[in-house]
Nucleic acid binder design. Structure first.
Length: 879
RNA sequence: GCCGGAGUGGCGAAAUUGGUAUACGCACUAGACUCAAAAUCUAGCGGGCUUAACGCCCAUGUCGGUUCGAGUCCGACCUCCGGCACCA
């Protein structure tokens, strides 16, 4: 052990030793409880950013903690290495995407190793390698077999910037998830995965994970799936054999329907265009054009529509009502047709007002309205449930009863049925890209689309392709790839040139970690069932819907084909907050400026008054996502080489709870460095100045040791700290343990015993504190911890090889023998009294009443009651 | 609009789940050491009042409520963040 803490030196040393010893390689072991700790796999951009550092620091802390608790921990890493940036690099720089990707992986791997994350590198995987994507294709063929994969010509989301189709999830909010461009609609034939088959299960199985997943994630998924229960009702069209089917969640309001409103894209409209007037045809065109236009978020569009002059018959009342076309009815939801009930739906109300259509009240509030109000014209839609009025024989029924009875009635009479609709759509996975897993299909003129036989997998990507950035996917221009033989008739065939959405790779990559070298199967079910489900998954909230929904679906699919035995892939999910930093914008220069060029002005309390440039011009300070253009990005490599990986990791865990946004401030990290140095100096001093330092403490008889007050206090603090930190880790709190460790190290300094003159008791207490502190520090700063461990124990065994365990607190030692009790009068703190820990309630009461200060407040007053909370406080209520 | 989450010092944040609010760290101030600086150590650090040692009052977004006692529970409101959205 050196006198000075030199981070880089010991970090390199332990990273080498861990690698040589295979310290983190995981082997299934039925005798040990398993723990699968997983962080979302990175895209190999070539550069680690602070978000990665935070993500992996959290996972690593938990992995170390669990290892020290005796768990068999699997902590793997891999690369989400298919995707757009590699293809962009090919287009712009003329490099081969494969070489570009491999080079990036190499760089990022070395950066991760510099950070000292305890991965089992022997299980590393990469999505772009044929041994991995072979099984993307394998899964696709399986799903084709059981009807979960299918091809369909339909309107799909198209990102004009990325020039590819997108799934609904990736086009959420009408913009491309990757570049933010407004998506367009395009007719295209593409492959879909039938995720909708699992819609109900995806909702209902949330009960299995609701304890471990953040509520907001489940809410987002629930909203996204968007299940609503209601009924289909068919309206006959007058003088026509057509029927119009509507979906409604409020069949109880059907007597209030004043019209049927159709989407402009509705087949009934499109099929009867010729029969409509020119005016109607123009309106239809206008609405369709308007729908295709990009809309701003939150933008309200004015209701518009037109009467088709056709009539529909209300199957309940027999009433004849007009059929309209309305811009507010969407073809993509329900049936693309609604019954308009202006009295009880806000949108219908607005529509009816605009076109002066009749508004009828058919539901009244369950609690009787004020006299006369029932017949007064509605000034707004009453969209709550209530009691039916103006509805023939249904009058007087509650909405709830009526919904059930009227649905039955419609069913019995053949003009409707109960139904559930979803917002969720099947997952379109075709992408017009080169750098992805080829979809294993061959198109044959006589046999149609034919799946590639399993034995012929993988369908490998060609070495290269012409990357021009224009026209169709580069794959379609590689003749050797495209030209093929039909597996069925052996005639000429053309390969599918679309590749799979890269989200396919990330749906199941972490199953592959359990058996990464398997060439026959994606993984051995037995092995996967040992390690999975994931015990803790850690990643960004941005994947709340896309990745996390897909992977839940995939798990259920794998269960159904017999690969796994559980329903949900991860029992706990932690969504970490973003790492952000202060950015500085100069109005005078109309650009962001480097933090180093900014002078911060403060008052004497340290409050920031403002920021200026050297020339005095003001600078706006904001906390924003890190980015190149904002000049506020922080390079983890720089941080590590300045402060060391341990300090960077400790600070990133200490500065904020993991779910919160983390504001990266370089001054903050100094605190972490100081803390590590303090611990280091303490151990160094004792090790070098106390001759008995590394003697085996087991040879000392604990019962014969004498501890004076100071040593006792230190031991108490040590054991209390163990208690606190264990509780924190168990509840997923990672910032407060660092604070607790700092407190413990402060207590060690407070001992003020010189190593040279220490008694045996002192030495024991100090060694106990040092050992405990070191082991509890391991999850945050494993390199320093290993080095300290070596110094404390006096040998060269690593922490895990030494069979060390996370310290366990001794309750007897942790217990305070004297407690401070707060004494309140009428709930206000008036005094503090000291008492032995075992003090009884009565004694406490007497003690409190005897206090001079308290007597001042109670003199001459009547004591109403006294509340005693053992070990905490006494509250005297006086009048 | 609907759903979810959050508001605590100059800042990041703690608070055993209803029991001494502001732990720990950053920043700041003063002192020690030093020729000096850095580093380190020591002390102070929510606001106001006070006769300044003792002590009092007010403070966890706002206003109410429950309770002996509320940052924590309940009701209403304000603000911010996130998600979804003519979803029928």
């Amino acid at each position: 052990m050196d006198e000075k803490y030199f981070a880089q030196k010991i970090e390199r040393k332990w990273q080498r030793l861990w690698r040589e010893r295979g310290t983190f390689e995981a082997v299934p072991d039925e005798k040990k409880p398993k723990f699968y700790c997983l962080e979302m796999l990175p895209y190999p951009s070539g550069k680690l950013h602070m978000g990665h550092v935070r993500n992996y620091s959290i996972g690593d802390a938990l992995s170390w903690y669990k290892r020290l608790q005796g768990f068999n921990v699997l902590h793997p890493i891999g690369w989400d290495s298919f995707g757009q940036p590699a293809e962009q690099a090919a287009i712009k720089q003329g490099v081969n995407p494969r070489d570009w990707t491999e080079e990036n992986i190499k760089q990022m791997r070395s950066q991760l190793q510099t950070l000292g994350i305890s991965y089992d590198w022997s299980r590393e995987i990469a999505a772009h390698r044929p041994d991995f994507y072979k099984f993307d294709q394998w899964f696709f063929l399986k799903m084709l077999e059981i009807g979960l994969a299918y091809r369909k010509n339909s309107e799909v989301n198209w990102c004009p910037h990325c020039e590819t189709t997108l799934s609904n999830e990736q086009a959420s909010g009408g913009v491309c998830w990757r570049c933010g461009t407004h998506v367009e609609k395009q007719m295209r034939s593409q492959w879909f995965l039938r995720i909708t088959k699992y819609a109900d299960e995806l909702l209902e199985d949330m009960s299995q994970i609701e304890d471990g997943w953040a509520e907001r994630v489940l809410t987002m998924q629930r909203n996204w799936i968007g299940r609503s229960k209601g009924a289909y009702v068919e309206f006959n069209v007058q003088n026509s054999e057509f029927k119009v089917k509507v979906f409604t969640t409020r069949i109880d309001t059907i007597y209030g329907a004043n019209s049927i409103v159709l989407a402009a894209e509705h087949p009934f409209v499109q099929g009867n265009l010729d029969e409509f007037s020119g005016e109607v045809q123009d309106k239809v065109d206008e609405i369709i054009a308007e729908h295709a236009k990009p809309k701003d978020y939150g933008e309200e569009v004015e209701k518009d529509g037109i009467d088709t002059a056709m009539k529909a018959i209300n199957p309940f009342s027999g009433e004849e009502i007009p059929i309209w076309i309305g811009n507010y009815v969407m073809m993509g939801y329900g049936t693309g047709a609604v019954m308009s009930v202006p009295g009880h739906d806000e949108r219908d109300f607005e529509f009816a007002k605009k076109f002066e259509l009749p508004i009828r009240q058919v539901i009244k509030p369950a609690v009787d309205a004020v006299d006369g109000e029932e017949n007064a014209p509605l000034t707004e839609a009453f969209s709550e449930k209530g009691v039916l009025v103006n509805s023939d024989s249904w009058n007087g029924k509650t909405s709830k009863e009526a919904i059930a009875l009227m649905t039955d009635f419609a069913e019995t009479n053949g003009f409707g049925e109960g139904a559930t609709t979803y917002r969720l759509r099947d997952w379109g996975i075709s992408r017009q890209r080169f750098w992805g897993a080829p979809i294993p299909i061959i198109y044959c003129d006589s046999c149609g689309p034919v799946p590639v036989p399993f034995e012929q997998l993988p369908v490998e990507l060609p070495e290269s392709a012409p990357f021009t950035g224009i026209g169709e996917s580069p794959l379609s221009k590689v003749d050797e790839f495209v030209n093929s033989i039909c597996p069925k008739c052996e005639g000429p065939g053309r390969r599918e040139t679309d590749t799979m959405d890269t989200f396919v790779d990330s749906t199941w990559y972490y199953f592959r970690y359990t058996d990464p070298k398997n060439t026959e199967m994606p993984f051995e079910p037995k092995t996967a069932n040992y390690w999975l489900p994931v015990d803790q998954y850690i990643g960004g909230i941005d994947h709340a819907v896309m990745h996390l929904l897909y992977t839940r679906f995939w798990t259920k699919m794998m269960r159904d084909i017999g690969l796994v035995e559980f329903d949900e892939p991860a029992t706990k999910l932690l969504t970490q907050g973003m790492v952000v930093a202060e950015s500085f914008y100069s109005k005078a220069k109309e650009s962001y400026v480097f933090p180093d060029d900014v002078v911060i002005e403060r008052d004497e309390t340290g409050k920031v008054l403002g920021a200026k440039l050297a020339d005095g011009s003001p600078v706006r300070v904001a906390v924003e996502k890190m980015g190149k253009s904002k000049l506020n990005g922080v390079d983890p490599n720089d941080m590590i080489s300045i402060y060391g990986a341990d300090a960077v990791r400790t600070f990133s865990m200490f500065a904020a709870p993991v779910e919160n946004e983390l504001v990266w401030q370089e001054t903050g990290i100094d605190g972490a460095v100081r803390f590590l140095q303090r611990v280091w100096r303490f151990v160094y001093k004792w090790k070098t100045e106390n001759a008995n330092w590394t003697a085996d403490e087991n040879s000392a008889d604990l019962s014969k040791l004498e501890f004076d007050e100071r040593a006792k206090n230190l031991r108490r603090k040590t054991h209390q700290t163990i208690q606190r930190i264990t509780e924190n880790f168990e509840s997923g709190q990672f910032n407060t343990p660092v604070a607790a460790l700092m407190e413990l190290s402060n207590a060690m300094y407070d001992l003020k015993v010189e190593p040279k003159t220490a008694t045996e008791g002192d030495l024991y207490a100090v060694r106990e504190a040092c050992k405990s502190l070191t082991l509890m520090l391991t999850p945050y700063a494993p390199h320093v911890a290993e080095e300290l461990w070596e110094a404390i124990m006096g040998n060269e065994t690593g922490i895990l090889e030494s069979d060390a365990r996370f310290p366990v607190s001794d309750e007897e030692v942790a217990k305070e023998d004297e407690v401070e009790i707060a004494v309140q009068v009428n709930g206000k703190l008036r005094a503090r009294v000291k008492a032995v820990a075992e003090v009884t309630k009565d004694e406490l009461e007497q003690l409190a009443l005897a206090d001079g200060k308290i007597q001042e407040y109670t003199n001459g007053k009547e004591i109403v009651k006294i509340i005693v909370v053992p070990g905490r406080l006494v509250n005297i209520v006086v009048r």
